[in-house]
Simulated assay, not measured.
Amino acid sequence: MTMAMPALPVRILGTGEHIPHEQVSSAALDKRWGKPAGWTARHSGIDHRHFAGAGETTSSMAASAAIGALAAAGLEAGELDCIVSACSVPEQAIPCTAVLVQRELGLHDSGIAAFDVNATCLSFLAALDMLTAAIAVGRYQRVLLVSSEVASAGLPWHDPATAMLFGDGAGAVVLGRADDSETGVLGSHFQTFSAGAELCRVRSGGTRVRPAEGMDAFMQGAHFEMRGPATYRMAALRLPAFLRQLFERANVTLERLACIVPHQASVKGLAHLEAALRLPADLLVRRLHERGNQLAASIPVALHHAVISGRLKRGQLVALVGSGAGLSFGGSVLRY
């Protein structure tokens, strides 16, 4: 039996989002691929998504979302003591994206610590778990956590079934130590099954596929590859047990949750989550229909929507859950 974890005194002080300039409808993708009208929307569950336009980079979008989160928290950027970027794909190989976010925020001479955490689509949750522990023991006081994704840069446009699912965007939260018992992180849980390591991948960009050994192979490996049906089957098999263990660690039941903020992977994935947990239709926070799958940014963007729409209020319980390449699962339950 999974043991319950002690709650940690960490509070979400503010949330923010950046919506890229270019709105791309599923009708426009129908025309691009020569599909019948309504094909993309019917198969993806997405009405439209947004793509980064000219001048919009991973770090600039992250900084835009961060400014909103800082304003909601009532803080200035200079009051932070740590900046963490949690993206599936960084803006560049070196230096890390958090360095570029720090510069975008005008903090280039501040000395504020800046580093990345990468766990693909689970990057936000993995970083949240690490920072929760760091804040709880007093290592940091006020931390900016951002997830910003330009998925459109590496989509396989020859594969409509995959390319239609994704959108760009950024979400941010400011974290701080809670000074009361009304907020806190009740529990977190992560699992990885590397039998699924080849199901979702981008092979280039690291040291495995090298430009000097052939640019054709490098360019081919630079596009996102996904074996969708196999990914779904493996996730569907593992998800119910994982969720039971998450809720046991947090010592909560579904009935106590105000909402669940899931990774917006696909309409089929969201439907399976709803069916597996036998959820009421309104418990899941859904943004897929007008954001698409934003990789690691999906969860903080959906969380931001839950907060600003009133779906999630102070003192209420929320579960953040997702999956990512690996194949990995992650989740946290917190009292907002």
Rank of each mutant, 00 (worst) to 15 (best):
F329V: 01
G326A: 07
G310W: 08
A302H: 00
R233W: 12
L320F: 00
G38K: 05
L312M: 02
G269M: 14
I299W: 01
V101F: 12
R32T: 02
A41M: 10
A63S: 05
K313A: 10
C259Q: 09
R287H: 07
L295N: 04
I260V: 11
I299Y: 01
S152L: 08
L80W: 05
G34W: 00
N118M: 09
R49P: 01
G324H: 09
M226P: 07
S88P: 09
V318T: 08
C259W: 03
S44I: 12
R139W: 01
G171P: 10
C259P: 09
W33P: 00
R233P: 13
L288W: 10
N293Q: 02
A41C: 01
A258N: 08
D30K: 00
G14L: 08
Q264D: 08
A93S: 07
L70Y: 05
L257I: 06
R203H: 14
E255C: 06
D129M: 10
F242G: 09
R291I: 05
A133V: 13
H289T: 15
A72L: 02
R314H: 08
D216N: 11
N293S: 04
S88C: 14
S181K: 08
I83W: 03
R139Q: 13
H108Y: 02
R249L: 04
S188P: 02
A93W: 09
A119L: 13
Q191D: 15
G53A: 08
A217V: 12
V307M: 04
L13T: 00
G331I: 02
S298I: 04
S204R: 02
E17H: 14
L312I: 06
R238Y: 13
G322L: 08
V261N: 06
I135S: 00
Q294S: 11
A52Y: 05
A306I: 00
A297G: 03
P160L: 06
A72Y: 05
V267R: 15
W157D: 02
D129N: 13
G176V: 09
L29G: 04
L312R: 05
R103V: 04
A170S: 14
G53K: 09
Q23S: 12
Q92E: 11
H158A: 09
L283N: 01
F193V: 07
G16I: 00
L320C: 00
H48W: 13
S44G: 15
I308T: 14
H50L: 01
S332C: 15
E255V: 07
F190R: 11
K313G: 04
E104Q: 12
M5V: 00
A7F: 06
V185T: 00
V333A: 08
P160V: 04
V99K: 03
L270Y: 15
S44H: 03
A113W: 05
A195K: 11
A325C: 06
A163E: 05
G154M: 14
Q264Y: 08
P6R: 11
L283W: 04
L283D: 00
L273P: 03
V321N: 07
A281S: 13
P280Y: 00
L327P: 03
N251S: 14
Q316T: 07
V101R: 05
A178Q: 06
Q23H: 04
E255A: 15
R49V: 05
A52W: 03
V261C: 08
T207G: 12
T40M: 09
L327I: 12
S64L: 01
L288T: 11
G331Q: 07
I308H: 07
L246K: 05
A235G: 15
E213D: 15
P90Q: 06
R249T: 11
H305R: 09
A113T: 10
P6Y: 10
